[in-house]
Design a protein around this nucleic acid. Structure first.
Length: 951
RNA sequence: GCUCGAGUGGUGGAAUUGGUAGACACGCAAGACUUAAAAUCUUGUGUCCAUUAGGACGUGCGGGUUCAAGUCCCGCCUCGAGUACCA
């Protein structure tokens, strides 16, 4: 549990997952487990900073208020997350609370950053190692024997390395460090004034705020997550997560296997490297396409094509990511005039540029096989390029054939082979002849790790010239005070505003790092800190992390699939590699709770206008009241109902005469501007009793509604329309847990949120049903009481009472263990209904009932537990075991079916054998009736299940 | 477009392994108590036909497997989520 503490506070959707995990935690405690059930806050982030820019208030102040309660600058009361949570009765261990924005927490986020900075990824041992081991290798062997995760492709010798200056060596190391500074194409969001990671962009705009994003080459910190691509993919098999989240991560990592192939360029020394997943189709290549940004483009372009190519490059650069995405259908490109040499056939193939080839994926160049790839086919078709067919008996006149079941032809040594074999052979030949090699490519990009913002972790980094160094002590670098939370005039991030003495550390270099870390830094490892939240010497003590291990049950939203969940897996693997923690995956079992949707109320309005021939002294439009109409009346109007129309006309005449009375000299007539166009207003959930609007409250809500007119139903009720929406302040459909706790109690809220439906499912909030759960708790109370007084019997429970209790114990245990939190509430209701009709007030029964109910309704369970004479809290009780003896029955009620249709029930002894059952049922008079004299073709008897006759 | 998930009464949902579809609630209707309201309790409530007895239909649509399908298989429709020229 790790919410972002926003100023809006909690609505009923937020606690859903917390309630479920609290039920689980309390249940496991009753079963004798030591349960770590913590809560903390992911308290760095954009909203607090945006608010700070607007109001000048320090984000630390507003964040504290959001958590602990208080008032904002305008005097509005902020309830505070903690206060709201406390009302619901969670069994969180508050001693373990962490906040990412507290120096004693981000000290360790900075520490982890330093470890990542001081590490490289050894592809040979397939794990991260300390950078010292790499430096040692460079000193003695250069980089030729090193197999490391890096984008650096040239080689250098030990002599080279040793001859380099400190600055040059550090620059080289950045190519290998797992946290590194480099000039990369980043997603720049001008509106937010910062770069964003790929997962922070949805549909081409920023996830927060929906601002446009552009590509920009900037010197930024990145995390070499791509080094872990294969492990992040492979280890998905070891965790118990939903298929959909695993699928999203798989797609995001985007592994594809194929070959890297080099094509010579006619007349140049340079080669074009391409990546292909279909090396088997290499004889189908009839042209090549480079991304417009490809480095070779300007070099190989012939003089007569130069103008066209440059114009195209310019146009492509001007296109935003979004334009490019929305414009997938248009085919565009330009011929460079240059030719590449096909490695096998030696034929000349034209080299084009086109923006369908992305500079950021693979090598930024493709070998185009128009017969096998639809994009290549479209391109070839558009520019009238040759489309050679290399598939036997396949028609490619209408489009490419991308299926992998064809037989290859016209392909020399690959002829008559199927795709799989041809691919293998092609890679073999490519490697043999030195044209390239087999290669695995990932979509996953290295993650940009710096943000040009104030409210985030400062880097423990300083610069000497342009060379970054990490501070070599463990002191926290605290966020310095600044005069404004905005970039400087020179475009530097807000931290550049901090004076040298505003920093709590002495900068050993020229300056400190001005960027801050992204939101996912602190949230990538918080679960580890929960194990040891106050440790001043380590991020987590080894014995603690060895004891608690990884998270058993993680309940959170599915929206973190490509962000938080990927990054924390990455950091966990890194910390595992360096032997700081004993596990490779942070979260064993994950449940993604569904969204609780708002149920917006709509108040329909008829537009009013003024009809007048004279513009002088006309009725003031602003004096017209709002005319609202009830839902059913609106329906009738839409159906051209005459009576409804008369009602509206009458109302308008009333309004008209009232205005004229008040001001006799005005001219014009009030009229409806449109009877069909009926706009609406979302109505505040607090003004409603069911679907009935409290008209007086609504009128007083806003001054512009004070003189509103309402057309109600015949019984005087004003009915609102309904629409299912996201719960949000702007839609006036927010239900706070506080109101419900006030009205019904925390136990009712807890049980009701669970009762609403399966945890994973999205479901609309409907407060009406809450009375059912509330009634159940009252009924439970009455089991223990006669009128006001406690009335408990110490008599021996009956068989029936024991059966009711024990089947409930069994079901509750089973349900909780399969994470079904809605069905136990029904089960409790059934049990209480049964015990009520049995008039059971036996201590032996009710005592156990209290215990099994306590995870769901801890307050009432504790109170009744105490009333039963227990002095210790119910928290320390033991979850009872069910006794199978009480559940076994002598008889089973058989449904007897004829041709699969159930006709009647017949109760027979459980022990009765197949043959006896058949004989008994055959002898039954009802059977005779349904057989109607016929002999059944077949009789199916499944003991203790069913009997079915086939006639 | 591709990938994944989901479609059950008026509503939220239950049916865990193919074995009585609609548990438990809400809502609605009728009744009891009450001057009245609230609270509480009782009864009914998938649709259609039938006075009753009973019958037919019924888990998005069309087909299939099976003695038996909400559940398994094939094809389609709708909604939701992710992704977006990934070579």
């Amino acid at each position: 549990m790790f919410p972002y503490p926003s100023g809006a506070g909690l609505h009923v959707g937020h606690p859903l997952g917390y309630i479920a995990s609290d039920v689980y935690a309390r249940y496991k405690r009753l079963c004798g487990f030591n349960v770590l059930h913590p809560m903390g806050y992911d308290s760095f982030g954009l909203p607090a900073e945006q608010y700070a820019i607007q109001t000048g208030q320090h984000p630390a102040v507003t964040t504290k208020t959001n958590i602990e309660g208080g008032t904002d600058k305008d005097g509005n009361v902020i309830p505070g997350y903690r206060n709201q949570l406390d009302k619901i009765g969670f069994s969180f261990d508050w001693d373990r609370e962490v906040r990412t924005s507290e120096p004693n927490y981000y000290k360790w986020t900075q520490w982890i950053f330093k470890q990542i900075f001081n590490s490289w990824y050894n592809n040979e041992s397939d794990k991260a190692e300390k950078i010292d081991t790499l430096i040692e290798k460079f000193k003695t062997e250069g980089n030729t024997t090193v197999k490391a995760a890096t984008d650096f492709e040239d080689s250098f010798s030990a002599a080279d390395w040793n001859s380099w200056s400190e600055e040059e060596q550090q620059a080289m190391l950045l190519n290998y460090r797992l946290a590194y500074l480099s000039d990369t194409w980043v997603n720049w969001c001008p509106a937010l004034g910062t770069v964003l990671a790929n997962d922070e962009i949805k549909n081409g705009v920023s996830e927060r705020g929906g601002h446009p994003v552009e590509q920009k080459l900037m010197r930024q910190w990145s995390m070499r997550i791509t080094a872990y691509a294969e492990r992040l993919l492979k280890d998905l098999d070891t965790v118990d997560w939903t298929d959909s989240i695993k699928e999203i991560q798989k797609n995001w990592i985007g592994k594809s296997q194929g070959a890297a192939v080099f094509f010579d360029v006619d007349g140049f020394e340079d080669k074009i490297e391409v990546f292909t997943t279909r090396p088997d189709t290499i004889y189908g290549v009839s042209f090549m396409v480079l991304a417009p940004e490809h480095e070779l483009v300007s070099k190989i372009t012939t003089a007569d094509q130069k103008d066209k190519i440059e114009a195209y490059q310019k146009a492509a650069a001007a296109k935003s990511e979004r334009d490019r995405m929305s414009d997938v259908k248009t085919i565009s490109g330009e011929f460079t005039g240059a030719y590449a040499i096909h490695p096998f056939s030696g034929e000349k193939v034209p080299v084009w540029i086109g923006d369908y080839v992305l500079a950021t994926y693979g090598t930024g160049a493709v070998m185009s096989v128009p017969c096998g790839d639809q994009r290549d086919w479209d391109f070839a078709n558009h520019f009238k390029i040759d489309i050679p067919n290399i598939f036997k008996d396949v028609d490619i006149s209408e489009g490419a054939y991308a299926e992998k079941d064809a037989v290859i032809t016209n392909s020399d040594f690959l002829n008559d082979l199927k795709v799989k074999k041809a691919t293998k052979l092609a890679i073999y030949e490519i490697e043999q002849k030195g044209f390239g090699k087999g290669k695995t490519q990932y979509k996953l990009r290295n993650a940009v790790f710096s943000r040009q913002r104030y409210w985030g972790e400062p880097f423990p980094v300083y610069y000497k010239g342009d060379t970054p160094y990490v501070l070599d002590n463990n002191d926290v670098v605290e966020l310095p005070e600044v005069d404004k939370y905005l970039p400087t005039e020179d475009g530097d991030p807000p931290l550049a505003r901090a004076n040298k003495d505003a920093w709590n550390v002495d900068c050993p270099g020229d300056r400190m790092e001005f960027n801050t870390m992204p939101g996912w830094a602190g949230s990538s490892w918080y679960f580890l800190r929960y194990m040891d939240p106050t440790n001043e010497n380590e991020f987590v003590a080894k014995d603690k992390v060895n004891y608690w291990q990884n998270v058993d049950l993680y309940i959170g939203g599915a929206e973190h699939a490509t962000g938080h969940l990927l990054y924390s897996r990455f950091w966990t693997k890194f910390l595992y590699d360096l032997d700081y923690i004993p596990f490779e995956e942070p979260f064993k079992k994950m449940i993604n709770q569904g969204m609780i949707q708002g149920n917006s109320a709509l108040v329909y309005r008829i537009g009013l206008g003024v009809l007048s021939t004279n513009k002088n002294n006309q009725i003031d439009l602003k004096s017209l009241p709002n005319l609202f109409i009830s839902k059913d009346l609106k329906k009738r109007l839409e159906n051209e109902d005459l009576e409804a129309n008369i009602l509206v006309d009458k109302k308008i005449r009333e309004i008209n005469s009232r205005i004229k009375e008040a001001n006799p000299n005005v001219n014009g007539e009030v009229t409806t501007t449109s009877r069909k166009y009926i706009p609406f207003r979302h109505s505040d959930i607090n003004f409603l009793e069911g679907d009935i609007l409290d008209i007086e409250k609504f009128k007083n809500w806003r001054t512009e509604y004070n003189n509103s007119e309402f057309l109600t139903e015949e019984n005087g009720d004003f009915i609102v329309g309904r629409e299912i929406d996201k719960m949000s302040k702007s839609k006036y459909n927010v239900q706070t847990p506080d109101d419900l706790v006030e009205k019904y109690g925390a136990d009712t809220l807890r049980c009701y949120e669970m009762f609403l439906g399966p945890l994973e499912q999205h479901k609309p909030w409907d407060v009406q049903g809450i009375t059912g759960v509330h009634g159940f708790l009252k009924k439970l109370w009455r089991l223990f009481h006669n009128d006001e007084a406690l009335d408990i019997s110490d008599a021996e429970p009956t068989k029936e009472e024991l059966k009711s209790l024990h089947k409930t114990i069994k079901k509750i245990k089973e349900d909780i263990e399969r994470y079904s939190f809605n069905t136990p509430v029904s089960t409790f209701m059934i049990c209480v209904n049964e015990l009520t009709s049995l008039k059971c007030n036996k201590r032996a029964i009710l005592s156990d009932l209290c215990i099994i109910l306590s995870p769901f309704a801890p307050h009432i369970a504790e109170e009744l537990w105490n009333k039963l004479g227990n002095t210790e809290s119910i928290t320390y009780a033991v979850f009872p075991e069910h006794n199978e003896e009480y559940l076994t029955e002598a008889n089973h009620k058989y449904p007897v079916s004829f041709n699969g249709k159930m006709r009647f029930m017949l109760e027979l002894p459980k022990a009765m054998g197949k043959a006896d059952i058949e004989a008994t049922v055959m002898a039954n008079e009802q059977t005779a009736k349904y057989l109607d004299g016929k002999t059944p073709k077949k009789v199916i008897v499944v003991p203790n299940k069913i009997v079915n006759f086939v006639i």
